[in-house]
């Protein structure tokens, strides 16, 4: 589904990604971990098409299409969803109106007619229950005055509504208390199916207790330096990242 080959990217002349290789198949759950500043969030931004990042080398293929050639909105319409680490507030634009616009733009791209108001509301209700999203947040302005936890839950609710093929969760667990973490995780688990893939970016193993990954990758200094299964996350929790860095330096000095 997603193939990243030798991806290099920089921001304001500073090299951030230095040769990422990653293959993600349908239905897989990938976790990306790594110390601060290793490039985890940058990878998410580059995939989503944020324009202050410049790709200097490499390729990204999504369902056989060149993702890097597409405008951000087209990537979204093709089925790439980014749950933001810091969702923005947009005053005056209601959550519902925003979602309806987004959903219908994506449908139009796929040649589908706009959803009728009744169908839209039905879908809203269904997804709202699925991910346990408060209905009183629906008519409020998009993220305006939402608590940190509410914003993150809104991201998961949008994910449920827009039903993408690939969901990238950028530190969705940061700033969540344990109850919110449980609700968000259970929402994500309910959305998992054989067609949908996930990339979960996180600092902590804690999230991976709730969302069990198929693969765990360690990103360090703009590269994936180790790939394993969920046991790797546990090992990182116990031992930190230093042993991996040492291993890497040993390898590089040989």
């Amino acid at each position: 589904m997603l193939t990243i080959k030798n991806l290099h990217a920089e921001v304001e002349g500073k090299k951030i990604l230095k040769g990422i290789n990653l293959e993600i198949n349908k239905g897989e759950m990938h976790a990306i971990m790594g110390p601060n500043g290793s490039g985890k969030s940058s990878l998410a931004s580059v995939l989503a098409g944020r324009d202050n990042y410049t790709v200097t080398e490499g390729e990204v293929w999504f369902n056989g299409k060149n993702l890097l050639d597409m405008a951000p909105e087209d990537r979204a319409r093709e089925g790439v969803f980014l749950a933001f680490q810091y969702p923005v507030e947009i005053p005056g634009v209601s959550n519902l109106n925003f979602l309806k616009t987004a959903l219908n733009e994506i449908r139009a791209y796929k040649g589908l007619p706009a959803l009728e108001a009744r169908e839209f509301l039905k879908l809203t209700k269904e997804k709202q229950q699925l991910v346990d999203f408060h209905s009183n947040l629906m008519n409020r302005s998009l993220n305006e005055g939402f608590s940190g936890g509410e914003k993150k839950r809104n991201e998961i609710f949008q994910l449920a509504m827009l039903d993408p093929q690939l969901a990238i969760l950028d530190e969705t667990d940061s700033g969540l208390d344990i109850d919110a973490l449980r609700i968000v995780s259970s929402g994500v688990n309910k959305l998992r199916d054989a067609e949908k893939s996930f990339v979960v970016i996180t600092h902590y193993q804690r999230l991976l207790e709730y969302i069990i990954p198929d693969f765990v990758h360690v990103l360090y200094n703009g590269r994936i330096i180790k790939t394993g299964t969920k046991e790797l996350a546990l090992e990182l929790e116990e031992r930190g990242y230093d042993w991996l860095k040492e291993e890497l330096h040993l390898k590089e000095s040989v």
Binding site: A48, G49, R50, D51, A71, P72, E73, R75, A76, R77, F81, L82, F84, P87, V88, I90, G92, V93, N97, F98, T101, A102, L103, E105, I106, Y109, Q158, L162
Partner: peptide, 18 residues
């Protein structure tokens, strides 16, 4: 604008929405 782009809304529509 980028947030709205990422939800499938192009920049012109994003400005109009805001």
């Amino acid at each position: 604008i980028f947030y709205l782009n990422q939800r499938g809304i192009d920049s012109e529509k994003a400005v109009a929405l805001i």
